[in-house]
Design a protein around this nucleic acid. Structure first.
Length: 808
RNA sequence: GCUGGUGUGGCGGAAUGGCAGACGCACGGGACUCAAAAUCCCGCGAGGGCAACUUCAUGUGGGUUCGACCCCCACCACCAGCACCA
């Protein structure tokens, strides 16, 4: 068979007959299958795309054969930094390179022969799409969930712009080489923290990999602790710390405040000013991972100020230290050197006192630092209490004297959404000197991204230089005003695309129709990399919950079921992705055809784990397909006696087991095992071929085999389906059912163990009762002698597998 | 560093706590052929043994269990994410 030629043929027929069109009238058995859409990066599809889209397409085809009306839309996450960097380097406008890349990728995805519903395609840089990105921003703004605040960013003084973490290489700007500093700047945020609790509890309702849920739980990082106010000496100002270990409050010997905290200037005394300034400057050159690393040396600088411990009345010094981060909790921590590892290191270094206020339960000689829960000592009336109880009692006392309160904290921070970039969705805000930040009226959406040619960064972001864009009248008061120059993080674009797909091209009146989207969503199965666990997957959940709260939809979670494909690596073990030279799937398709490529990918690596790409097995997949072809063509016209004996029974057993297990393997994305089962069926067919004679039976096996293989080799099986004289299309068939009776054997081999050691393997009838079964085993000629004179003290029976006799 | 994950023959990989290594590759052998390729069939973890068989073996070290690749603890190596790459 000429695999390459038949693929062209069937791609055309499928398209002409609109075989895979989604039937919007049959929503009762719809199946919304979605792969994370891709960034239109290089000039052509790399194997990673194939891995993601090709294999989940096979899953979709399997679902279709099971009778589902499969919706599998496709689109592009088209805004983003790479196109802009490319433009700065080459002068090619991001719009042009992006459109070009999309076109190439579309063609290749179509060649792949997927069931994608292109008629719903969406592209995030289309004004028709980003109109709704802007609309979403405005809804969040109206509810107070989009707001501006000062936040630390990477700033390159020479480029005069904010740069991304990935653009900082060894502390310098990758573009110009100057030293990058952390700096507070005014930024737009989405208040995702308002949803922290629900994002946490909602995880219990969705069918996601446990590891992904764990990642999100830890990312949200709920901790129940307390806030404590420490009054500043000789001032009315107070410093509020957050602690999850308020039981250690009697051990506080100092306070630590983050260098960029806004209260720092109020704390620094004249004598300490230059030292603190220098310290803060140095801290601004470090990134957060270095700062918070438990192994990097702790550094700090005394501010000159002291605070009063509200419970002990003790005076303790306040330090600035960069191991404290301003964005978590209050940005100030109480230093308890005896019971916190980092505080201990810090105290050692600066010769601060170390107090013991917790003992290991039942001991008085506990070594410091002791960071577990224990029993309090040196803690006034709380001495002798267990940590757990003391936490409650101490908060009660703090509340009574007005110096503290119970507090739940989350590590989750608000989502920073503004970017000083050109190639992104414009933020629909107008800054008016009189009215402040005013949203663009919804009737004026979209705010179209102007086509500029100078997108080099310059303080404000590239749009800031475009006067025609920036200068507008305030929608509220009509006076001169300026547009927001920043654009949105591309994660905003992708936070609702799954909601927009079902009506992407036709609904220009609303983001989506509520009745329809309630029927189409949630997405039944979502496929994408685990690297999105704490960002895209969290943002989408947040936005879905927000849209529910403003009455746009009726469900809480966007993705009911989730699978992560592993990463396909190049021969060098490196990522095959947008950032290194991508391998093209084209050459393989031209030589072996897309079905062989797809089969090889499915069989040779675990989908969930990925691994190093190896094309060695490709030619064998072609050989396997030819092996299938030979037996199918040989059997298609055979006539023979209508007998059903041992041979038929044996093949029927394999057939039915294969039908059952291939379906189970597909459900868990264990494609490699599914293909292995199909190979076993083919092997069994060849075995039957040497002796079996039942022609009708052979025809049935051939038909079932082709349907089982169809999701994994769509063109190939469609062609054979036609060759055996069946009606178009194989994808309108139903996945075969299996007969439980044919899978259950009359006799199975049982492993017989005595004291957990295998002593025999016996064929035993499955119909025996447990007593009959034990009787049969113990009286066996091999087993009986080993039991003579011994007493059986325990019998462990694992049905159809093993028996273990414990003897004395 | 923190969070999550992975580790099984020469290789990719199978195994609801129940006969470790399914299926495939590589390798060896046989059939077919003048021959080769292709195809079809058989064998194939390591050590010992002519053999029946036997010992060892799922990153390392412990533990739980009648029984552990699987559960628990500690460690080692590698991978992903760490909030402005998407």
């Amino acid at each position: 068979m000429d695999f390459v030629a038949i693929e062209k043929k069937w791609n055309k027929i499928w398209e002409d007959t609109k075989l895979y069109n989604f039937d919007e009238k049959k929503l009762d058995k719809k199946f919304y299958l979605l792969e994370m859409f891709s960034y239109p990066s290089g000039a052509s599809l790399h194997l990673g795309h194939w891995w993601n889209f090709g294999l989940s397409d096979s899953f979709g085809r399997f679902k279709r054969l099971q009778g589902y009306n499969v919706f599998q839309p496709m689109g592009f996450d088209a805004f983003g930094l790479p196109a802009e960097n490319y433009a700065i380097k080459t002068g090619i406008h991001p719009e042009d390179s992006t459109r070009h890349n999309i076109k190439v990728m579309e063609e290749q995805l179509k060649e792949m022969g997927g069931m994608f519903n292109w008629e719903y395609e969406l592209i995030t840089c289309d004004p028709e799409y980003y109109k709704w990105t802007q609309w979403l921003f405005i809804q969040l703004f109206k509810k107070g969930l989009a707001y501006q605040k000062e936040a630390p960013v990477n700033f390159c003084p020479s480029c005069n712009t904010i740069i991304a973490n990935e653009q900082v290489v060894d502390g310098v700007c990758e573009r110009c080489g100057s030293e990058v500093v952390r700096k507070n700047m005014r930024q737009w945020f989405f208040k995702i923290t308002d949803y922290a609790e629900e994002l946490l509890s909602g995880l219990d309702t969705i069918d996601w990999p446990e590891k992904t849920k764990t990642l999100q739980r830890n990312w949200i990082g709920k901790s129940v602790g307390a806030e404590v106010d420490f009054k500043l000496e000789n001032s009315d100002e107070k410093l509020t710390v957050y602690t999850s270990r308020v039981d250690t409050i009697y051990g506080v010997t100092f306070l630590v405040i983050a260098p960029e905290h806004k209260l720092v200037p109020k704390l620094v005394t004249k004598e300490r000013e230059s030292a603190v300034k220098e310290y803060i400057l140095n801290a601004s050159k470090k990134d957060e991972i270095t700062r918070t690393s438990t192994t990097s040396p702790k550094t700090g600088c005394f501010t000159g100020s002291y605070v009063i411990n509200p419970l002990t009345g003790e005076k303790v010094p306040v330090f600035v230290a960069d191991y404290v981060i301003s964005t978590y909790a209050t940005g100030i921590v109480m230093g308890v050197a005896g019971h916190d590892a980092r505080d201990y290191d810090f105290a050692k270094k600066y010769n601060l006192p170390i107090k013991k206020v917790i003992n290991e339960v039942g001991k008085t000689d506990t070594e410091l630092p002791f960071c577990e829960y224990g029993e309090l000592c040196n803690s006034a009336e709380f001495s002798g209490m267990k940590s757990e109880d003391a936490k409650i009692k101490i908060v009660e006392k703090l509340e009574k004297i007005g110096a503290g309160r119970k507090k739940v904290n989350y590590k989750l921070r608000d989502w920073s959404v503004a970017r000083q970039r050109y190639w992104g969705c414009p933020i629909p805000i107008i800054h008016c000197p009189h009215c402040g930040a005013v949203p663009v009226p919804e009737k004026d959406l979209p705010v179209v991204l102007p086509h500029i040619t100078d997108y080099k960064p310059d303080g404000k972001g590239p749009l800031g230089k475009c006067k025609e864009y920036m200068n507008v009248k305030c929608p509220k008061c009509g006076r001169d005003a300026q547009r927001e120059a920043d654009t949105l993080d591309t994660f905003v674009d992708s936070s609702f695309y799954q909601l927009r797909y079902p009506e992407s091209l036709r609904n220009d009146k609303e983001i989506f129709n509520r009745q329809y989207v309630d029927k189409m969503l949630p997405v039944d199965c979502y496929v994408g990399g685990v690297e999105h666990a704490t960002m895209h997957l969290l943002y989408s959940r947040f936005i879905t919950k927000f849209l529910r709260d403003i009455g746009c939809l009726d469900f809480d979670e966007p993705f009911q079921r989730l699978f992560h494909q592993g990463m396909v690596l190049g021969a060098d073990g490196k990522k095959m992705s947008k950032r290194n030279t991508s391998k093209t799937a084209d050459d393989y398709v031209k030589t072996y055809g897309s079905d062989a490529l797809r089969l090889h990918m499915m069989f040779s690596l675990k989908y969930i784990d990925g691994g190093i790409w190896n094309d060695e097995g490709l030619k064998h997949m072609k050989a396997f397909m030819e092996r299938v072809e030979r037996i199918v063509l040989k059997w298609k016209d055979t006539v023979g006696e209508n007998v059903y004996g041992e041979e038929e029974k044996e093949l029927d057993y394999v057939l039915n087991r294969t039908i059952k297990e291939v379906a189970e393997n597909f459900e868990t994305f264990s494609f490699n095992s599914a293909i292995a089962r199909i190979m076993e069926l083919v092997n069994a067919m060849y075995k039957y071929d040497t002796k079996g004679k039942n022609g009708e039976f052979k025809k049935k096996v051939v038909k079932d085999l082709l349907i089982l293989l169809a999701p994994s080799a769509p063109h190939f099986t469609e062609e054979l389906w036609e060759e055996i004289g069946e009606e178009y299309s194989i994808f309108n068939q139903r996945y075969p059912g299996y007969d439980e009776a044919k899978i259950s054997l009359e006799k199975v081999e049982i492993a017989v163990q005595i004291n957990s050691k295998i002593v025999a393997r016996l064929d035993v009838e499955t119909s025996l009762s447990e007593d009959e079964f034990i009787e049969k085993i113990t009286s066996d000629v091999k087993v009986a002698p080993l039991l003579s004179g011994k007493q059986i003290v325990k019998k462990i029976v694992v049905p159809k597998r093993l028996v273990n006799l414990i003897v004395k």
